[in-house]
Computed example of a mutant assay.
Amino acid sequence: MSIATTERRGTARLKELLAPLGVAGATGAVFAFVGVVDPNQPGHYPTCPFLWITGLYCPGCGTLRTIHALAHLDPVTALGMNPLAVATIPFLLFWWGRWVVRAWQGRPRRTTLAHPAWLWAFIALIMVYWVVRNLPFGAFLAP
């Protein structure tokens, strides 16, 4: 194998890694910003539009405070703010890691994130979570 071929493969790998590394950089920037700018203090972030209009919690309510707690290495508080967001993080890390490995190996990108049945199950879980966190017996899920 010639040096030019090796250099082309290395350049191609770096180009393929730019997207997942960009996502990691953007995610790190969000975690750093939310870790510094406390969402528990009023006036830093806008109110959730769904909460503001209806008075009910959406599935994402409490996620900024969850990120802030995780940025400060406080998983117990993070779970209290939005347990679904905390439970989703390992799956997101897995998919991101799989993306990095495929890019490094030069394998083509997958056009599907997961089997459609898993995606529909996740959507159903979000809907159930949305309803239950707004019912009296699900108050422990509210931020």
Rank of each mutant, 00 (worst) to 15 (best):
R102F: 06
A121P: 07
V36R: 13
T6D: 13
A121E: 04
L51A: 14
P116K: 05
Y129F: 15
M127Q: 12
Y57E: 11
A4S: 13
W95F: 15
L141W: 05
Y45A: 04
R110C: 07
T27F: 09
K15G: 07
F33R: 05
T111K: 13
F33L: 12
I67N: 00
L135Q: 11
T11C: 11
L56R: 09
T66E: 01
W95C: 08
V100H: 08
Y129H: 08
E16D: 15
F122Y: 12
C48Q: 06
F33G: 05
P116I: 02
F137S: 10
A12M: 06
A117E: 07
I126R: 00
V86E: 02
A139R: 15
L21Q: 01
P42S: 08
L84I: 12
G28V: 04
V132W: 09
A69V: 03
G80V: 00
A24T: 01
T88E: 01
Q105L: 13
H44E: 13
K15M: 07
A12Q: 12
M1K: 13
G60I: 08
V34H: 00
L51R: 15
I53F: 15
P116L: 02
H44I: 06
R107S: 13
R65W: 03
L14R: 11
G97N: 09
Y45T: 07
V36E: 10
L51W: 14
P136A: 07
K15D: 02
T47G: 07
R110N: 12
A142T: 07
W104Q: 04
F94L: 14
R65K: 10
I123A: 15
A78Q: 04
V128G: 09
I89S: 05
A32Q: 08
I126W: 03
L21H: 01
L21V: 03
T47A: 14
W118N: 04
P49Q: 12
T63Q: 04
T112L: 10
P75Q: 06
H72P: 02
G22N: 04
N82Q: 07
Q105Y: 06
A117T: 10
M127E: 08
A121F: 05
T88A: 15
Y129R: 09
L113P: 01
D38E: 03
L92T: 10
G60D: 04
Q41D: 10
R9Y: 11
T77V: 08
V131M: 04
L73M: 10
G28A: 11
I126G: 00
R13I: 09
W95E: 14
W52E: 15
K15L: 12
L64W: 02
